[in-house]
Design a protein around this nucleic acid. Structure first.
Length: 632
RNA sequence: CGGGCCGUGGCGCAGCUUGGUAGCGCGCCUGACUGGGGGUCAGGAGGCCGCGAGUUCGAAUCUCGCCGGCCCGACCA
């Protein structure tokens, strides 16, 4: 009984000032024990009494009985949750929010996180990685040395002497700092990793554990002195990640990604498809092409040019300030016959981005193309100063060469186009891009749309919403050069270390697993990451036969090394079934008077909700077999 | 950072328009019954109504400010 159990569980370290507190508790617990011990019927052996008695003893019994575990399940979805994983992880007692984007993991949640970590550690050790533990608090200077001192997401603090510290957003800097102790190519390659909390003051945390401000990441870093060595490490990680996610029961799609502010030449993200995600990924089922929308391209159907003219012709378009308005305007043009002109400020200088009227800009592509560290849309007054007109009438025809113009290939060679005339209320028609527009650089800037053709095989592309669970980067020498991490090569020459970095968000992976493994009754954990693999549900725990049969099965499973939870609560069976399913334990063995009457218990498999009756003394063994089979 | 919504026992919510003893369901505690899908009955505990100021004889309710949370957008290593 939970009441009894709780009351006897006085912390050894109780520091209450009232002497009576702990003493009374102790007295009460003794009284309860004797009552409990006295309750059993006369036909029990002393061994039975001892085993019952041990129920009340906390210290030497693993906390795997429901009455002793902290599993605060909720009947209703939390009001502030939207994402499936958020609702379920809170409802099922895995996690609680402290403030926006900061969560506590409860025992069940921690058990899952530890299992995921175990899989990750196992696979990394298989590729020769060594585990470290680095600090969360870093001196700000080291971040300044690599040019990452001004990241808006960083949490900053000062120590009592006024020294500036930053809570680590990641650990390239610190691992690279340590790598300076590498002296010779003979020590290479090295692969180092850790599980550590990262702090990122996101502008908008959301979707429960999917996007948070404080989270544990497995990050690893590879050090070598040749590009081939880097390629090898990158490949090793890629394959290790594949195995990790497979073992976690996560279907991932590996996509080309933008390296963003991490720098480096190449990066691949591991994405999990879910409605709660925020990253769009483009995939081709036929040839396997896959890319983040920040990077993806497609093959376009050719657009039809309007008749050409000898020179652009200016015409009045009063009140027309959008692409759509110009489509509807008498004498206007279809969207794919227009040139969209966007003005950005890139590291302080203006830049024009030109796209086809029906296309959208991917800002990340602009950042990647310009190498900008700061990029934003220009304000209206800046635009007015630069081009002499307001947004809605902008264009690049006849601009001075001083202004940098990046244009998307979709408008290359087009004729008879319509674009703004840089005079409010006027547009040009008959624009011949090659003739009339001076383009500084042609770069892919447009966003791929669902249903466009695959750049590799021409098949139709699909667009999916996903969440990023891992990201691997070829960093090159960005960090090693900034921090002076060099080794001597075969020729005795100092060369910078060539690095890779590789991250997996543990909490995010846990949430992603829930996103993909659930039904209307709750979570369905894959066995490998389940907080418990089996729950033994005792239907009528007050009845000695039920209780004892349940205990026996529970102990047999424990002895077989199965993660098993005994639901010994004195509540109705419905409550226990609902909770077990909500929590998502893969196997349930139901022990109750009905089955015991003919010597059976019921084995229930959460996935697929399959039930079968087995003889009492066969059940533990059979379920053990199932579990061992499911573990991979 | 812009826009919207919301803060009332542990959880989910009503009450606010029209100011006057703070309510409901679930959960929790005690006891009994019950026992194969969130069961029944009886009794009970628990609330600076987010915080602060103001209006008023009187504020959960009206006004102002602040704080916190969620969603959309922008942003994102």
């Amino acid at each position: 009984m939970s009441g009894d159990a709780r009351r006897t569980r006085r912390p050894a370290s109780c520091v209450c000032s009232k002497r009576s507190c702990c003493e009374t508790a102790r007295a009460t617990s003794v009284a309860r024990r004797s009552r409990r011990a006295a309750r059993p019927t006369e036909d029990r052996s002393p061994a039975d009494v001892v085993s019952l008695y041990s129920l009340d003893r906390i210290g030497d019994v693993p906390a795997m009985k429901w009455t002793q575990a902290f599993i605060p399940t909720l009947r209703d979805d939390p009001a502030d949750a939207e994402a499936v994983s958020h609702k379920l992880l809170v409802r099922a007692g895995f996690a609680r929010q402290l403030v926006s984007g900061i969560y506590s993991l409860l025992p069940l949640g921690f058990r899952v996180a530890r299992k995921v970590e175990g899989i990750v550690r196992d696979e990394l050790e298989k590729i020769g990685a060594q585990e470290f533990q680095l600090p969360c608090m870093h001196p700000t200077e080291i971040w300044e040395q690599t040019g990452r001192g001004e990241i808006p997401e960083s949490f900053r603090l000062k120590d009592r002497h006024g020294a500036d510290l930053v809570l680590g957003l990641t650990h390239e800097e610190i691992f690279t700092h340590l790598s300076r102790e590498l002296r010779s190519y003979k020590e290479l390659p090295q692969t180092w990793f850790q599980f550590q909390t990262k702090f990122r003051d996101e502008e908008r945390p959301k979707s429960g554990l999917l996007r948070v401000r404080e989270f544990v990441m497995k990050d690893s870093y590879s050090f070598d002195y040749t590009l081939e060595g880097l390629d090898h490490q990158f490949q090793q990680h890629f394959e290790a990640y594949r195995r990790i996610f497979e073992r976690c029961g996560l279907d991932t799609v590996a996509v080309e990604a933008s390296s963003g502010a991490m720098g480096g030449s190449e990066s691949i993200e591991f994405m999990v498809q879910t409605e709660s995600g925020e990253d769009w990924v483009v995939t081709c089922e036929l040839c396997g092409y896959a890319a983040n929308i920040e990077k993806a391209t497609s093959t376009l159907a050719p657009a039809e040019d309007a008749p050409g003219m000898d020179a652009p012709e200016k015409f009045p378009t009063p009140g027309v300030v959008t692409i759509q308005a110009l489509v509807d305007f008498e004498g206007g043009a279809p969207a794919d016959g227009q040139i969209k002109t966007l003005v950005y400020v890139v590291d302080g200088s203006p830049l024009l981005a030109l796209l086809r009227g029906d296309h959208d800009l991917v800002e990340q592509k602009l950042i990647d193309a310009t190498g900008a560290s700061d990029l934003r849309p220009a304000g209206e007054s800046e635009i007015q100063t630069l081009l002499g007109a307001r947004p809605g009438s902008l264009g690049a025809v006849g601009l001075s060469d001083e202004i940098r113009v990046l244009a998307d290939p979709a408008i290359q060679g087009r004729t008879g186009m319509v674009t703004g005339a840089n005079e409010d209320g006027f547009h040009f028609r008959g624009v011949d891009v090659a003739r009339d527009v001076s383009v500084t650089e042609w770069v892919d800037l447009r966003e791929v749309k669902d249903g466009e053709s695959c750049p590799a095989c021409e098949n139709k592309l699909t667009l999916q919403k996903t969440v990023e669970v891992a990201h691997i980067f070829k960093l090159g020498t960005k960090y090693s050069e900034a921090l002076g991490a060099k080794v001597l090569d075969e020729n005795g020459k100092n060369v910078p270390l060539i690095m890779g970095s590789y991250g997996i968000g543990i909490g995010r992976a846990v949430a992603a697993i829930v996103e993909r493994h659930n039904d209307e009754n709750g979570i369905i954990w894959p066995v490998n990451v389940a907080p418990f693999e089996v729950v033994v549900t005792v239907v009528k725990p007050k009845e000695v036969a039920c209780h004892e049969a349940g205990e026996r099965i529970y102990e047999t499973l424990l002895g077989a090394g199965i993660d098993v939870l005994l639901d010994d609560r004195d509540v109705g069976p419905g409550v226990k079934f609902k909770d077990a399913e909500l929590v998502g334990i893969p196997y349930r063995i139901t022990v109750g008077p009905k089955g015991l009457a003919d010597g059976t218990v019921e084995v229930f498999r959460r996935q697929g909700a399959r039930k079968r009756d087995l003889p009492v003394d066969r059940a533990a063994e059979a379920v053990t077999e199932n579990v061992l089979e499911d573990r991979r």
